[in-house]
Amino acid sequence: MTRVLVVDDQALIRGALAALIRAAPGMEVVGEAASGVEAVALAAETRPDIVLMDIRMLPPRREPGQPVRDEPEAIDGIAATARILAEAVEPAPRVIILTTFDLDEYVYAALRAGAAGFLLKDTPPERLLAAVRTVAAGDMLFSPSVVCRLIEAYAGGPGAPGVAVAPPVLDPLTSREVDVLRLVGRGLSNPEIAERLLVSVATVKTHLNRAMAKLNVSSRAQAVVLAYESGLVTPGSAD
């Protein structure tokens, strides 16, 4: 059973998403949150497998007569995602960002925060459910081409095109782990990396998992970001 936490500041959307999840075989809603702060608290309490996270949320309404100093803290979906993943007990939940804004900067912020997926709110119900299943199975909901386009647009790594030497931030990695991270950064899938390096897919997964643990990144998306921001991979560089 896939346990889902639904987060949206609009009650109508939140309720519709929750109803959709409850009606889907093999899924259950473990909580509904109307703010980023509430999402962080519920994620810690319920330990969901998946969090459907609204990217933009307004501060909670203040009741008449409530002192300003008592207003709850307001954080958006990106900040809530980062906090949930930082405070999670393993296994950490996987976060799918939901937004009405098809803007690259939001996708990039979601990648940096550790989100495992990104969907527009006008996504058809069947596709949203498929996305939940995909992410719950451990896959990303970003195509390699989209990831690379975003990184090239927003991350200017310090290295020069074609540089093959690992930067100091990657010193904890073995040479093979660096090779795998470089190819992940170029958008290759695990089978493609295995074919390129003449190793098994299981070996690729092992190297990538070890590299991510050493670098303290929690998702493949964050590994891609780090590969670019460190200069290991640069826009326009050759494989």
Rank of each mutant, 00 (worst) to 15 (best):
V199N: 01
N216G: 11
A211M: 07
S218T: 14
K214L: 01
H207D: 14
V217M: 03
N190D: 11
R196H: 08
N190P: 04
V224W: 00
L197M: 15
L208Q: 10
K205F: 05
T203Q: 10
L208C: 01
S175L: 15
R182N: 07
T174C: 10
V204H: 01
A213M: 07
V224S: 12
V225S: 10
L188Q: 01
T206S: 15
L208N: 02
T206R: 14
L197P: 02
A211I: 13
S218C: 11
T203G: 05
L198C: 12
V217R: 03
L215E: 04
S189V: 03
L215N: 09
E192Y: 02
T206A: 15
R182W: 03
E192W: 00
R196K: 11
T203H: 08
L183Y: 01
V225P: 00
S189L: 12
R196A: 11
L181M: 12
T174H: 03
R186T: 07
L181K: 07
E177A: 05
E195M: 09
A227E: 02
E195F: 05
L215M: 15
S189G: 08
Q222H: 04
L181N: 13
L215R: 02
D179F: 00
S200I: 07
V178T: 12
N209I: 13
E177Q: 15
A213D: 11
H207P: 10
R186L: 00
V184M: 04
N190C: 06
R196M: 09
A211Q: 08
S189F: 00
L208E: 09
H207A: 12
L197R: 02
S175F: 12
A223D: 03
A227C: 03
V178M: 00
H207W: 13
S218A: 13
R210K: 13
D179V: 08
P172G: 05
E195Q: 13
V199D: 00
T203F: 04
H207M: 10
A221Q: 04
N216W: 02
L208Y: 00
V225C: 12
Q222D: 10
T206W: 03
N209T: 11
G187S: 05
G187F: 00
S189C: 06
G185V: 12
R210C: 06
L198K: 14
T203S: 15
M212T: 13
A227L: 06
V201T: 14
E192A: 12
E195I: 01
D171K: 13
A202S: 15
L181T: 11
L226Y: 02
T174W: 02
A223N: 08
L208D: 01
L181Q: 09
N190W: 02
K205C: 14
V201L: 08
A227G: 05
A202V: 14
A221S: 10
E195V: 09
L198Q: 11
